[in-house]
């Protein structure tokens, strides 16, 4: 079987237009170069960039629900000016109650800012809340607490969200991983 697929691939490659082939090498070079030049030009280290990314995610996830893994932070050159380009795949916008809740959390955080450990705990709590849609039970109870009237509406929303998310969202552990990464960096 292996041989057959090999032959098929070789033949198929021959008939494919040239542009599609070996696309990786050139675009890899361009992307690596853009990143390294941006670092050269601005003196921003990868560490600082990652920190910035983490903080932006924290801020924006108060207002929208997004696919954090696909969030892209790039610098683009337009003429003499360097622009910071942030591309966020939005899953859905949060509604007012959720935003208020998130802001309230933030205010709490600010109040507790005096002791660092407490602050970190609060941040962690906030984040699990934001990702709560992962485990249906948790998110449901939370949304109930936000406003009981709209629960039905939200349930339907949640369903569509689940459909639009191709990854196995049943696994509760999975989405926590990128979160940890972000947090490690923002702490550093």
């Amino acid at each position: 079987m292996g041989i057959l697929t090999d032959i098929y691939n070789t033949v198929a490659k021959f008939f494919r237009p040239q542009e599609e082939q070996n696309d990786a090498s050139k675009s890899v070079a361009t992307n690596r170069l853009k990143l390294v030049l941006m670092q050269d030009r601005t003196n921003l280290t990868p560490k600082i960039l990652e920190q910035m990314r983490g903080e932006l995610i924290d801020l924006l996830s108060r207002y929208v629900e997004m696919d954090k893994e696909l969030l892209e932070l790039n610098f683009e050159q337009e003429g003499d000016q360097v622009a910071l380009m942030l591309s966020i795949p939005v899953i859905r916008a949060k509604d007012e109650e959720e935003i208020e809740a998130a802001c309230a959390k933030l205010n709490e955080e600010n109040a507790e800012e005096s002791s660092e450990t407490v602050c970190e705990e609060a941040e962690g709590a906030e984040n699990t809340e934001e990702d709560a849609d992962v485990t249906e039970e948790v998110s449901e109870t939370e949304e109930m607490s936000v406003s009981e009237e709209e629960t039905a509406e939200k349930k339907t929303k949640k369903k569509s969200r689940k459909v639009s998310n191709p990854e196995g969202m049943n696994e509760t552990e999975r989405p926590e991983e990128p979160q940890d990464v972000v947090f490690d960096n923002s702490e550093a």
């Binding site: 040239q18 542009e19 082939q21 070996n22 696309d23 090498s25 050139k26 675009s27 070079a29 361009t30 170069l33 853009k34 030049l37 050159q77 003429g79 003499d80």
Partner: peptide, 17 residues
Amino acid sequence: IKSNEMMSVDDVVEILS
């Protein structure tokens, strides 16, 4: 450049502006 194994002239000009 045609087979996308080398950066094109446009790529370089864009990057270096």
